[in-house]
Computed example of a mutant assay.
Amino acid sequence: MTGPTPPARDEAAVARFVERFALILTDAGWPRMPSRIFASLLASDDGTRTAADLATHLQISPAAVSGGVRYLTDIGLATKERSPGARRDHYRVRDDLWFETLMRREQQISRWVQSVKEGIQAVGPTTPAGHRLELTRDFFEFLQTELPTLVANWQRPSPP
């Protein structure tokens, strides 16, 4: 006995999602092309696309693809892969992307805490800037404390 047939992929709806999600990322401060490329990778069934696929799906130039994927690989949100014997690179987002990103963020937060502590000493802890930096340090330290619990509570979804 087989289960229900999954609905057919609606490419027009997928394209609308990619553009809407990219706009949300852009509103949050991401550059426009990396936002569109990232959304396109997320929406692909296997999480991968070649540069040519990205250019076609997003109707952008190869140069725009190159710059966008460079940005995404530099910040660790996509990887560049090539199969043995293949001539084209594939760009991929991992299924556990957000978990891995959060784990890297934990290391960054430690550096931020240390830097802010230095800033507090530089501006003086009793100054208005010192107070603001102490609040910043307190927030980052709160994140450091809570992240392990958050990660422990995360239940990774099973692959479909």
Rank of each mutant, 00 (worst) to 15 (best):
G47K: 00
E134A: 15
R92W: 05
R70H: 12
D10A: 12
Q107S: 09
R70L: 08
D89R: 14
T79Y: 01
M103P: 01
L42M: 09
P84H: 15
R87P: 01
R32I: 06
Q155V: 13
F99W: 15
I37Y: 00
K117I: 05
E118C: 04
V93S: 05
K80A: 15
R132W: 09
F139R: 05
A12D: 10
R92Q: 14
P160H: 01
D95V: 15
T56F: 10
H131Y: 10
I37H: 00
L143W: 03
P6I: 03
G29P: 03
P157Q: 01
V18W: 00
D10N: 13
G85M: 14
P31T: 02
A13M: 12
D96A: 14
S40L: 00
L25P: 02
L42N: 02
V151E: 03
Q107H: 11
A28I: 02
D95F: 13
L133W: 04
L42A: 01
P128W: 10
Q107V: 11
L54N: 02
A12T: 11
H90K: 12
Y71L: 08
G29L: 05
T136A: 13
P6C: 03
R104Y: 00
L77M: 13
E106K: 13
G29T: 03
L133M: 12
R104M: 11
T127G: 03
A43K: 00
A51L: 02
R105K: 14
E11K: 11
F140V: 00
V151G: 01
Y71V: 06
L147H: 05
E118K: 10
R16V: 09
A52S: 10
R20D: 08
D46H: 01
L77V: 07
H131D: 11
P7K: 13
G119V: 03
A15C: 07
R16T: 12
G47E: 00
T136F: 15
L143Q: 08
R94I: 10
F38M: 01
R70K: 13
V18E: 06
M1E: 15
S61P: 02
R132Q: 14
G119Y: 04
D27A: 12
F139N: 04
A78V: 06
G29M: 07
W30A: 04
T136E: 14
G130N: 12
A152Y: 04
Q107C: 09
M103A: 09
A22D: 03
N153L: 08
V93W: 05
A64E: 11
D96I: 12
T50N: 03
S83E: 13
F142W: 04
D27M: 06
F38L: 04
E11S: 11
